[in-house]
Design a protein around this nucleic acid. Structure first.
Length: 174
DNA sequence: CATCTAACCTATTCAAGGC
DNA sequence: GCCTTGAATAGGTTAGATG
């Protein structure tokens, strides 16, 4: 039995970026912003990143973690309200319009070739590999991370849909 | 060792752009 | 209009720091 899947193997060699330490005054800015707006748009996150001299992706992670921690501290009515805000299908159009996203990144075919090759080599790159890859193809490291996340998720989804085909492909090669 | 929290993961959904 | 895929989310796990 092959008891080791990718996710388990990954952990041993997997090197993550070092922990960001926010100073008290910068943390205060983050918390104040969070209290006003727990779902900031891209522009807000960028502004915050500039203001406290951190990468925009660190701001995004911080808000993700903060929301996760907040959600089980909250009482039920409050939580219900926030959940409905998170699932914005209920919100009026003008509010949705203010929720700006980062621009859709369009990768060139040569950038994609590099990414796919790296993915085949290792679908769980550590921070160093991601940064090298980002430098090679000229996009921010956070985009590389998101690309790998999406790629893995879609591979898992595909395996669920058509487990036999994937199995056959693997067996053919072996 | 217990606690806290940044970093990271999958699963799912939203949305841009190509056909 | 549908499909592919980047961006964002919820919710959960891992690991580094600190008392």
């Amino acid at each position: 039995m092959a008891q080791n899947n990718c996710a388990n193997n990954m952990i041993a060699t997997h090197q993550r970026r070092s922990c960001t330490k926010f100073t008290a005054d910068r943390l205060k800015i983050l918390i104040d912003t969070f209290n006003q707006k727990p779902y900031p748009g891209y522009a807000t996150k960028q502004k915050l990143a500039l203001e406290i001299n951190a990468e925009e992706s660190r701001i995004q992670i911080w808000f993700q973690n903060r929301r996760a921690r907040q959600s089980f501290q909250r009482t039920e009515p409050e939580q219900a309200l926030e959940t409905s805000q998170a699932h914005r299908q209920h919100l009026p159009a003008e509010i949705q319009a203010t929720l700006d996203r980062r621009c859709h990144t369009c990768y060139t075919s040569s950038q994609l070739r590099t990414l796919i090759k790296a993915f085949k080599n290792n679908p769980y790159p550590g921070i160093d590999s991601r940064e090298q890859l980002a430098k090679d193809i000229g996009v921010p490291e956070s985009r590389v991370q998101v690309w790998f996340q999406n790629r893995r998720s879609r591979l898992f989804a595909q395996r669920k849909r058509e487990p036999d085909e994937i199995l056959e492909q693997i067996q053919d090669k072996g």
